[in-house]
Nucleic acid binder design. Sequence first.
DNA 1: TTTTGAGTTGTTCGA
DNA 2: GTCGAACAACTCAAA
Length: 432
Amino acid sequence: MNPKAIFWFRRDLRLNDNHGLFTALAQHSSVLPIFIFDSEILEKLPKNDARVSFIYQRLKTLNKSLGANRQIQTFHGTPKDIFTKLITDHAIKAVYTNHDYEPYATNRDLGIKNVLNQKKIEFKTLKDQVIFEKSEVTKDDGSPYKVYTPYSKKWLGHFNKNYIAPYPSETLLENLVEIKEQQWVSLESMGFVEADSKIAAYEIKADLIDSYEENRNTPSVAGTSRLGPYLRFGFLSIRSIVKNALKSSNNTFLKELIWREFFMQILWHFPQTVTQSFKPQYEAIKWRNNKEEFERWCQGKTGYPLVDAGMRELNQTGFMHNRVRMLVGSFLCKHLLIDWRWGEAYFAQKLHDFELSSNVSNWQWVAGCGVDAAPYFRIFNPTTQIAKFDKDHDYIKKWVPEYQELTYPKQMVDHKFARERCLETYKAALNR
DNA sequence: TTTTGAGTTGTTCGA
DNA sequence: GTCGAACAACTCAAA
């Protein structure tokens, strides 16, 4: 059957509870599902990027469950070129997709909308990856929140008033169709190789949310959800995760999901924060930006075992425990006085759960220059943090087994000295 | 418009 | 070892 509409998968790689997919299938009896490996994004990634493999594997899995004649068609190129060809070859009436709030994506979508509208084809976009988006949770005067706590209170108030039902897209899949010239691009044909991505199972354990508050700060314990990659690429719907979170009387985990949406609306309202400090006066900081020191930080050879353990966990697995992310971030920006943008870029390249809004805002938080940021004089002590969160050195031993041996490097900078240097540098920048 | 209270995750110092 | 205050003001949110 000839397709009348297209559903464009992006970061919503699932068939159930998918708002855009549901809307497309409810409104059209012949919907072509597609995914585009955007060449502009891929060309910036290493050929063994685990996240590309992760997406690729997921598409294969989805197609397996869809069966014959309704396969997701995959393309490699620029979305503009792909759509231009698709709407020339087929009598498409509408294209559906879910919202993406990142600056690159909003620009790209604007371009696609223009291409489609010129041919009188509708471009319909739906909210899917968050409970509340854009300006749905604002101050009473309509302006965006810049502080988390009042945002979270307003968020919860809205949530209690508006039950968010799932979208049963999985019940309408018979409306999916293929095109005659079936499309599937292989990873190899795009110049990529299959990566050994150690991205674990993504079912959230029942007791994890109950004990989340207690366990989440101990890096040697599996107390965090590790849902990041699945949320990033939409293997799971946020509505189902929130529903799970609500089963617990402890809302610490739910609050983390609200942080995610807080940062997403910040990115939406303040896209310049991808490259600029939210607080402009922090642009005056005279970063030292020593390349050799940066390299030691990247490799996990600072001589501070908990910092090094975190960086090595990141390098080896594409994941770092949240508690340690704060410490290595503080160490880079404050002990070494290296620009938060360098750290942000390194995390972006390495983290399997990389999410632009969270990465940027959290790096700005740790540097002190962001929304609701840590005060600049709050400097993590890389030794005290061990006593507090890795008392028995379980985490350190796992990633830095040689930490007590002679081969382990000396501390690359003295804590007290670095702390005072940092305070002076920040004070000078802020004219205090 | 003005005022008031509050603000993710810490550290250090001195009693 | 433990506890509270200071760090340093500033900005935000809401009454």
